[in-house]
Design a protein around this nucleic acid. Sequence first.
DNA 1: AATGAATGAGTATTCATTCAT
DNA 2: GATGAATGAATACTCATTCAT
Lengths: 195, 195, 195, 195
Amino acid sequence: MTDDTAVEKKSIRADALRNEDALLEAAKEIFATSGVDAPVREIAARAGVGVGTLYRRFPKRSDLVVGVYKREVDACVKAAADFTGQYGPGDALTHWLKRYCQFIVTKKGLAAALYSGDPAFDALPAYFRANFEPTLQSLLQSAARAGEIRGDIDAFDLLRAIGNLASVGGTEGAEHTHRMLELMIDGLRFGAAKP
Amino acid sequence: MTDDTAVEKKSIRADALRNEDALLEAAKEIFATSGVDAPVREIAARAGVGVGTLYRRFPKRSDLVVGVYKREVDACVKAAADFTGQYGPGDALTHWLKRYCQFIVTKKGLAAALYSGDPAFDALPAYFRANFEPTLQSLLQSAARAGEIRGDIDAFDLLRAIGNLASVGGTEGAEHTHRMLELMIDGLRFGAAKP
Amino acid sequence: MTDDTAVEKKSIRADALRNEDALLEAAKEIFATSGVDAPVREIAARAGVGVGTLYRRFPKRSDLVVGVYKREVDACVKAAADFTGQYGPGDALTHWLKRYCQFIVTKKGLAAALYSGDPAFDALPAYFRANFEPTLQSLLQSAARAGEIRGDIDAFDLLRAIGNLASVGGTEGAEHTHRMLELMIDGLRFGAAKP
Amino acid sequence: MTDDTAVEKKSIRADALRNEDALLEAAKEIFATSGVDAPVREIAARAGVGVGTLYRRFPKRSDLVVGVYKREVDACVKAAADFTGQYGPGDALTHWLKRYCQFIVTKKGLAAALYSGDPAFDALPAYFRANFEPTLQSLLQSAARAGEIRGDIDAFDLLRAIGNLASVGGTEGAEHTHRMLELMIDGLRFGAAKP
DNA sequence: AATGAATGAGTATTCATTCAT
DNA sequence: GATGAATGAATACTCATTCAT
């Protein structure tokens, strides 16, 4: 679909992008495994690049954290479109809320850095809201129009509520979160147009 | 009553205890300020002792974390007796639940270490339950007997619920936690024997 | 013999020369600003070329140092002809000696490298003498013949003497050097044929 | 000569001082051999201590440079007293001026750092003058009173003049410096009270 | 030929831990 | 027992050099 010329001209850039993505993926995994203070070298190694490359693209550790965070937001937002294509409005909403819970777990891993007061992270809350609010708003509207849930739910309120729920840590936290999410979804269904 | 030798020995022990306590207090503060990975030297310095002394009493960092955790549990449990002496059963309960929320915040600071998988922390959940459950049970019973709250509340359930609530972080988290706690206490009052 | 291809080849060579010159100029400036150990990248950047190009022409740092040194010698020698064309023999000499002092300052910047024992620099003293001695010799002779200075001055001696004088560093060094140079030039005039 | 108690109390400090001195001596040598930018590790290794120890006493490289500089000034000043004790006024002066030339060579090695604009070095010129001027003044006066040299020499002028002379680098610089120093000392003798 | 992305060796620096005093 | 000086392993970061495009 892409013509040869374009490919040729952007070949270096394509490599660079591949590296950048590999680094973010590696960072996400390492951050999850060993925390946000994990050795830079480990991340570079897992991404299969030299430390120099890592430093070229992410000069500060916070650049890496921000990168991982935004990438996760983007991935989660993108999932909404996938679900919308695959399922009916109600199920799409349900699936996406579960997916969003997964994102929250990632956020928890980065929390230490996020709340460190480093101004590098100042823009992230806005990024969160700017991306998630419209996404959930849209899912809610579709489901409400389809009569599957009630229509008086504020998207941001719901994002925060579930965010708080899913923030509860610990081994058994996951199950707990799941139960609470189910409950909450039932709550959304309660009072739907279509009984 | 005690002979000189004993006094001497005890006085040394008293010094040691003072050091130990100073170290735990210092560690609590430093952990809160700079996280659980803060330089050992800072803790020793704030406690006014040398690092060698710190290492003598707390050879591993986890010993320090465990020490701080248990100390906070103990302090919180002890507060229950104080409140019981000062207030009526209902108010004692209310005050203590707020005090317990403060403890949860401490726990949050140590969470990174606690959930690190280090077996050194394996015993802490049991310590938590063994100390807090009877404490709250007793407060609940007194308040229920006094007809100030309903009597069908399970202490451990309540500990977990409030624990989760208070775990929500962020600047506005504190207010949120407070509102939710008030609500929950109202819930306890609902259906009390004494209307 | 010069077909299109040749022309093309020459045009490329001209580009190459332009690059080479740009690199030497950049290196001179960077060496002066940040010392001989300045990052290679800075030099390439200031020259407006990639580091690869720099390495193609100057594989070792010493090549760059030698290049800058010789380029400065050449420029200084060339200035003699300009002065000879513009001024009378005495003034030409005076102007050139001042110009030579400027060169010494450059040399001072490179001194760290020059006296590092690297055999790459072994040929430079000879280059210095082979170029400067005849130049000054010629200027001296002209001035002596014109009766403006005495005729018993050895060019190399004078080069060394002024070199030493101008080597004195520091902020006030420049003024000091200038005063001493004036003095020395007066010395040259003393005992001239034409009183 | 020092009583036991004092020794005992200061035993740690004595070790520390030994280390400090070893580090300064090592730094002096390494600076001379490999320049002021030599690896910190080399200096620590030559001093026979760990890098941590070096960093404890000299957190910044400039601290080390300042330390070496002052130590050399002190040693040179101290030599004056030795010479005064050993020789007559004239010879003491001569010996000290040669010793001072050695110091200048050290200074030359540190020059790159000294003139780097780092404010850490701002105090050094004053230290230089405050220590050397009285020292030489005293030597000059003694020699003048003894009638061995003339009495109208300004100490600071002489310090600068010899400093400049001895600053001339290169392999043959040393001989040149020596010849010039001899000449200058002869100059001092010229016009002495005692002919 | 030119470019600059990638690499990783070299260095600085910090901090947990030991141990002589 | 207490102390804090010394140690050096762990880690961050820079920059010379190579090489695919």
